[in-house]
Design a protein around this nucleic acid. Sequence first.
DNA 1: TTCAATAATGCAACAAAGCCGCATTATTGA
DNA 2: TCAATAATGCGGCTTTGTTGCATTATTGAA
Lengths: 113, 113
Amino acid sequence: MILESLKTSKSAISQDNLQAQLGDLVDRATIYRVLNSFYEDGVVHKIVGDDGKQYFAYCRNCSEKSHHHNHFHFRCLNCGKIECLPNEMEVNLPEKYRTINFNGFISGYCSLC
Amino acid sequence: MILESLKTSKSAISQDNLQAQLGDLVDRATIYRVLNSFYEDGVVHKIVGDDGKQYFAYCRNCSEKSHHHNHFHFRCLNCGKIECLPNEMEVNLPEKYRTINFNGFISGYCSLC
DNA sequence: TTCAATAATGCAACAAAGCCGCATTATTGA
DNA sequence: TCAATAATGCGGCTTTGTTGCATTATTGAA
């Protein structure tokens, strides 16, 4: 059920999103455990929002070789909606630095708010 | 003292960084309050790390007109060091969207680790 | 099919980060 | 000088996320 929610969601979702969908069917801890094992298995990306919360997004264009999620996420400060911004980013790191995780978040107000 | 620490620090620092510097001289809650009022007054930038923690950086090149901090921060997963990456970024938002906060974080391993 | 080994779950507790109310202490200014 | 205002410390609280442990499901080999 969690995987299904992630697959059908257009944007990254958090534990409380899932909890709201699943109600009391599934325990909080279980949701976290499932999400983390998806993350460890490379099935989802994990993004930390500028609200400090973890969001998870189903991997759509990831292969064995490239497991990237290098775009920005937008969070509306009014309606709370999270969405992916189209532009993929390349950031130049200093010599010998190695990227493990890319985390880009912009918050503000969307066109409706 | 907090302002001095922020001014002299080369990178964004968090409440526990400050607490470590100040010891028991200043209460936890006071540090948070001072940091947030600096933030509200536009004296510092607030960045949320991909560890979910808040980091604060003294405004160096901000004027009345431009109060930006649009570069990425790097956090070393081994030594914990936070540093600013040189490239300033421009992200294209959809029509009528408004940016309030830019938050770019990359974690990985630095040249020493 | 049966039953032991393994995995997944729920529950409770815990930890860290951040915030807030309230009483106390400092600071300000008329 | 002293009352009004602001800042601080303390304690407690919330949220997010994690972990230990007992219980329940699932699996797989005999």
